[in-house]
Design a protein around this nucleic acid. Sequence first.
DNA 1: ACCTGAACACCGTTCAAGT
DNA 2: ACCTGAACACCGTTCAAGT
Lengths: 216, 216
Amino acid sequence: MSTRTGRPPRLSRARIVAAARELIETHGVQALTMRRLATELGATPMAVYHHVPDKDALLLLLLEEAAATAVRPSLPADPRARLIVAARAMRDILAPVPWITEVLTADDLLSPEALWYPEAILDAAMECGLEADRAVHAYRSIWYYTAGEILIRAAADRRRSRDDRPPFREQVFADIDAEQFPRLAAVADRWAELTAADTYEQGLRALVAGLLAGVG
Amino acid sequence: MSTRTGRPPRLSRARIVAAARELIETHGVQALTMRRLATELGATPMAVYHHVPDKDALLLLLLEEAAATAVRPSLPADPRARLIVAARAMRDILAPVPWITEVLTADDLLSPEALWYPEAILDAAMECGLEADRAVHAYRSIWYYTAGEILIRAAADRRRSRDDRPPFREQVFADIDAEQFPRLAAVADRWAELTAADTYEQGLRALVAGLLAGVG
DNA sequence: ACCTGAACACCGTTCAAGT
DNA sequence: ACCTGAACACCGTTCAAGT
């Protein structure tokens, strides 16, 4: 038992992680820089480095915290319904914090806390009749679809909120050649509306139906 | 008709775009910086700005060029097969140049030249019996799945090639609690192998089957 | 018109030093 | 142990000037 001496530390991992999350949630992932974080904490950049090895490690801490505090859904008994519910829950938790998915894809970082979701999906898929290998492949397909939806939607939102000028897409669609691209031309003026609709579950159900076709 | 006078320009849009592509293809997207590009061209950063408004505009030029030079597949007559072929072609073209997908999601940039792919997919989906709205939603689902696959795979490759230390995932899987996560524990040692397999088309076929279920 | 040089306002991270 | 200050090697972009 060592008696603490000296000044009490002003910084701590907990304070740093809290400030980092605050920064990301109010100003976006790109606002999280070691220097800005230090300023927010009233310290020098190097004071942060004394508590956290580097920026990657900080992102990992953020990830673990988010996964640990996430509320998990109660799963239905029917395995097919369970598969849908678990995937949807994973997406609903990640969607409001797209930076997590950005980190997950960018660095193959995976919090131990987050394993609950692949476990639930794998388990449901196997109970639906898929053998282990096919269940893993099914999980991968669902993860591709889910991560894609979150990343694309987040990028679109970011652009919409940040941008001065109208999206480049509008100009492309305005100039579209109806002879060459008749299908696109026909829906061009409704594109924004159609892509704004939340069709995640629709697509997920289609994917799951296709993945489970011919089994169970 | 103005007669050109003065020194011939050393830089040009074409030279800049070519050097940028070279830089990306040999060193990755993150290596494309205006300063490094200028150095590569033997000029100052500002010389580049004289030919291209900013970095976003440069990425757009790169995109247009890639889409314009891409080889398009011949499409089968059967609309369902056509849907698969068009989506696969889109993915096969984007997979070796994942930075394009990163740009596409990050900035909603869309080259007029690239419209061929959504047009082909939309057309095939509608010939399969989907009405316009559902066809657009189907295209979106396919794009989420495709972009997700490309981005996640590219990120994994990047990490694998760059990294000194083994992926964090390995450590997480080594420490896995078999009581709490039995399904994951059972496949943990084969996870890398299973996720390395190219299951894009398998997942695509499942997704398309699900999207087209009950029509046509 | 085409390009240079210096500057501004940033990054992540290291190194040496202070208490 | 905990933190500061200065520095290194970078960014994208602007401004003023040269030919």
